[in-house]
């Protein structure tokens, strides 16, 4: 189990690092997909089937494709000639370290509260569905509202462009 975990973790990390360090933007996007796939595998390793497959469906099937589309449509698919580090790399490093510290603190603090050997909870897809439309129905509706607003916004942007060119 732990060997598989380390293998997947290494794959995910390698994908993430490659996404940051590679010169060709499309290669970066593809490396990012590898990191997504690694995350999905980690979820599956934790017996979270729904989360794992949703990760593949949404992140590889939609987000990665969206990223790739954005790269192609904005003419930034050419390979960078100079270095891959931006000028504000130090600020980025600080922010990344800060986020990592907060997340690490949260995970460690949460882990201390749990018993060391916890019985793995068996969560079926049905339970997730019931929780979504039961206890978490308000967050779900808020997300739905946000997505609808985004969709309408996209439609308006598209309409505007059409009118201008005619």
């Amino acid at each position: 189990m732990s060997f598989v975990f380390y293998l997947i973790a290494a794959l995910t990390l390698a994908g993430g690092l490659a996404a940051v360090l590679l010169r060709n933007t499309v290669h970066c996007a593809l490396a990012l997909t590898v990191a997504f796939a690694g995350l999905a595998l980690l979820f599956l390793g934790l017996d979270a089937q729904f989360a794992g497959f949703a990760q593949i469906l949404i992140y590889i099937g939609a987000v990665a494709i969206l990223v790739v589309f954005a790269i192609l449509l904005t003419r930034s698919s050419e390979t960078a000639q100079e270095g891959v580090f931006s000028k504000s790399w130090f600020a980025g490093l600080v922010i990344a370290a800060g986020v990592f510290a907060v997340l690490g603190w949260a995970v460690l603090a949460g882990a201390r509260a749990l018993p060391l050997v916890a019985a793995a909870p068996t969560v079926t897809v049905q339970d997730i569905g019931n929780a979504l439309v039961g206890r978490y129905v308000l967050p779900l509706e808020i997300v739905a509202l946000l997505l609808t607003a985004a969709t309408i916004g996209a439609v308006i942007v598209a309409l505007h462009e059409k009118e201008r060119t005619r």
Binding site: L30, Q49, F50, F53, L57, I60, G61, A62, I65
Partner: peptide, 25 residues
């Protein structure tokens, strides 16, 4: 026999899109 079999199927179907893009690009 997966509990989320249908989701698995669609997740795999979505991954083919990426290969199509890879081939084209």
């Amino acid at each position: 026999d997966m509990d989320a079999g249908l989701l698995f199927f669609f997740a795999m179907g979505a991954s083919t899109e990426l290969s199509v893009f890879m081939a084209g690009w």
